[in-house]
Amino acid sequence: MDKNIKVKNVIVKTAADFFMPIALIFGLYVILHGHLSPGGGFQGGVIVAAAVVLVYLGYGHETTENVFNENLLKKSETFAAIMYAGFAFLGIFYGANFCRNVLADKMGAAGELFSSGTIFWMNFSVGFKVLTGIGFLSLIFFGLLKEKNNESK
């Protein structure tokens, strides 16, 4: 029985090692290219949050607790929400209505990466909020699982 478990650990750990950078980079790509191709804030955020789950699957609960700082995730989540509302309020400061795209002409031309005004920044803040939020949620669920596993062992 021991031999079986060791092999399973090595396989899962290797797969997690391989897929984690892919998850991070691909997720960031989807977030940043939200105005050019399908995707956007929520989808990219969920892909990046899969990195937290991969760390837990490959390395176990203690490593996950050491790598991710719960307090920082909680505070970043609220900060991202305030950032989103701040960008939406920019419209009122510039004289138009709420959520108006007032930076559209001040950034690059259509079709480039760094373009389309406040859509880019709002996309980024939504992605940031989703990745911190779902990461924090997953960390709490793993904490619950650990207690149950300790009780049953």
């Binding site: 909680k74 505070k75 609220t78 900060f79 929400a81 305030i82 509302a85 939406a88 309020f89 009122i92 209505n97 709420f98």
Partner: peptide
Amino acid sequence: NHLPIIAIQVLFLGAFISGLVGY
């Protein structure tokens, strides 16, 4: 004209700001 949306957003912003500075 802007008062309704500001009234709504103040409540949401209050939620998040209190989460940030309440520690």
